[in-house]
Simulated scan of single mutants.
Amino acid sequence: METIDFDRLTLTPGMRVLDVGCGEGRHVNAAALENVGEVVGLDLERANLEAARDDHDEYIAPESDVPVTFLSGDALRLPFEDGAFDVVCCTEVLEHIPDYEAALDELRRVCTPGGALAVSVPRAGPERVCWALSDEYHEVEGGHVRIFDREELQAAIERRGFERVDGHFAHALHAPYWWLKCLWWDRDQQGDAPLPLRAYDRFLEWDVLESPRPVRLLERGLDPALGKSVVYYFELEGSA
């Protein structure tokens, strides 16, 4: 389940792509199926990186010869040279970082002039519902530390020399799931999730695995109103 739509980015042979906070590698693996030169995924959690490597080796490597590297690292101290990447991705990460502007500085530093940045964060409306339903949702260790105003986030990125070129909302069907999860947070954490939450969880798993066209069209239609994530695409000023 990708949040970034790589069709909205101009990917060409030889490009280097970085995913900061790659998790279990969904965007790394998606980028590796595109016509690029190299993809790097970076994450703090070693368990995530191990799962990402396993998925890549099993599902992507047989289909793609694009070199892929997974590294352990911190978004506040990226272990790369200035301007090292043509495309930098950062999805559902900045809401976890207290000093998110320092992370933006690092994303800017490693992006080559003329390169692209794709960023997503939880959308303010659906996120406020989650916070209202459960304190634990955002107070848990490693949880969300802020609700982003998307205009404020866009302005912070543009102050660093980026120009917004595209944007959209995503994952409308996941918003009600997280509202139910927050409503029954204590029971879910104790392994006693009620039937509606368990049924919704199974539905989302089926959707991810099967990607049925009617469900995909339904979510696309609902995204403008209910999309849980807001996704922005930027270009960095200057010539590559």
Rank of each mutant, 00 (worst) to 15 (best):
E163L: 13
D186G: 12
D166I: 00
L107G: 04
W184T: 15
E237S: 15
P224Q: 07
P62I: 08
S64P: 03
R159V: 10
L204V: 07
V68L: 04
D54S: 14
N48T: 03
A156E: 15
N35I: 00
R146K: 14
F148T: 06
F80T: 05
A225M: 07
A199V: 13
A84V: 13
S64F: 01
P212V: 02
G25K: 04
L44F: 07
Q189F: 09
H96G: 14
E106P: 04
G21Q: 01
R216A: 14
R202H: 06
L104Q: 00
Q189T: 12
R46V: 13
A52P: 03
Y233C: 04
R26F: 05
L173N: 03
R128H: 11
E210H: 13
G21R: 02
Y177V: 09
G221Q: 12
D166C: 00
V140E: 15
A102D: 07
V165N: 00
A61L: 14
E219P: 02
W206V: 02
V231Q: 05
Y59G: 08
H96C: 14
Q189P: 09
E101P: 01
D135Y: 02
P113Q: 12
D7Y: 04
T112H: 00
R53L: 15
C130L: 10
H96K: 12
S211L: 11
I4P: 03
A225F: 14
E58M: 08
G41H: 09
E101W: 01
H144S: 11
A102F: 04
R150Q: 09
L226A: 10
E163P: 02
R146F: 09
S229W: 11
D192P: 03
R123F: 05
K228A: 13
C22E: 11
I4L: 07
G114V: 08
R77E: 13
F80A: 14
